[in-house]
């Protein structure tokens, strides 16, 4: 597998630095509503919630991309499953957030198990193209789902309810619920990566043949990781639908899948914090470029190519070089 990944044996110092960075980012997020009050900018919370959702999705993708060397180019499909889980249950009068998340995770688990089992029969370029194709399949399914607006999507009548209360209608509550979900999933992902399961996954990334030789079946571990990652991403979709109060197939276009990969690589692959940081930086950069010019995609594309050619390990790589250089 030709995905470049940082060496497996990480220094413990760096490990804790990674956690510290995560805590710093979370603290920054927690303070955001305060900044929104001070600057009197209510949009800050909506942007913040959107960033939190993508941070969850990028972190979930990093779990398989960074630790399992599976470059999934169809991960936006799970964002869509999460978003449509909200829209579909809402239309049947079921508005509870926990039920929305349960439904989103259930659809995603089913889809990820089937498509993952087929995609994992292949590797490398094939895997990338097949996950992309399956992502598009899901996209076209929702485009032709005329009951929910088809191509145009459908607005949500209400946000999800939290244990029977409409607390999420308040942008601040929505923001903190998203932050709580991000932190909870970060802890889960960190636990997974540190567990025996995670070590087998990393071993498979490094050398699948050797893992088989010591009696483990890489396929099962990779598929499990693929399913877990898809389910986590769908939680981000639930948040996005609630943030936008709108659901459309645009959530799951292949551009979105590409942007998720951009976030992970921008932050540095194979350490969950990087993906979160990458999501923050990528979305802020997008917003900032969009203010500069309506043709921001052109600039973003140039930025991407330059990043790949000159700083392939993303922000984490740059930080590591910086700290090493000072010693």
């Amino acid at each position: 597998m030709s995905v470049s990944a940082p060496p497996t044996a990480r220094r413990p110092v760096l490990m804790s630095a990674r956690i510290w960075f995560a805590l710093l980012i979370f603290a920054g997020f927690a303070a955001l509503p305060l900044i929104a009050v001070v600057t009197d900018d209510p949009f800050l919370l909506l942007i913040g919630t959107r960033i939190l959702a993508y941070a969850i999705a990028a972190m979930a993708l990093d779990l398989i991309l960074g630790y399992g060397a599976m470059v999934s180019f169809g991960h936006a499909a799970y964002l869509g499953f999460g978003a449509y889980a909200v829209a579909i249950l809402n239309s049947y009068g079921v508005t509870d957030l926990t039920l929305h998340i349960t439904f989103a995770v259930a659809i995603s688990a089913l889809f990820a198990t089937i498509t993952g089992a087929i995609s994992l029969r292949t590797r490398g370029v094939y895997f990338i193209m097949i996950t992309l194709a399956f992502g598009q399949m899901a996209y076209f399914f929702f485009v032709s789902l005329s009951a929910y607006g088809g191509d145009d999507g459908t607005p949500l009548a209400t946000r999800s309810t939290l244990f029977g209360s409409a607390a999420l209608e308040d942008d601040r509550v929505m923001f903190y619920v998203a932050l709580a979900l991000l932190i909870a999933l970060f802890i889960v992902a960190t636990r997974i990566v540190g567990s025996r399961f995670g070590r087998v996954l990393i071993g498979t990334r490094e050398n699948p043949v050797r893992m088989e030789a010591i009696g483990l079946s890489p396929f099962r571990y990779q598929l499990t990781a693929f399913v877990i990652s898809g389910c986590m991403t769908s939680v981000a979709g639930v948040i996005l639908a609630n943030q936008a109060e709108f659901v459309s197939p645009a959530f799951m276009s292949w551009h979105r899948s590409g942007e998720l990969i951009v976030m992970v690589v921008l932050g540095g692959i194979g350490n969950l914090t990087g993906a979160i940081g990458g999501a923050v930086v990528a979305l802020l950069l997008e917003d900032w470029l969009a203010v500069l010019t309506e043709h921001w995609r052109l600039l973003f594309g140039v930025f991407l190519i330059l990043m790949v050619l000159y700083s392939p390990h993303g922000i984490t790589g740059a930080l590591e070089r910086f700290t090493r250089g000072r010693k």
Binding site: S2, S4, I128, G258, V265, V302, L304
Partner: peptide, 18 residues
Amino acid sequence: SHLDQVLATFGLVMIVNE
């Protein structure tokens, strides 16, 4: 790596489309 190729050509798609 394939990942780098995906990213750079994805950037190229954005540049040319725009």
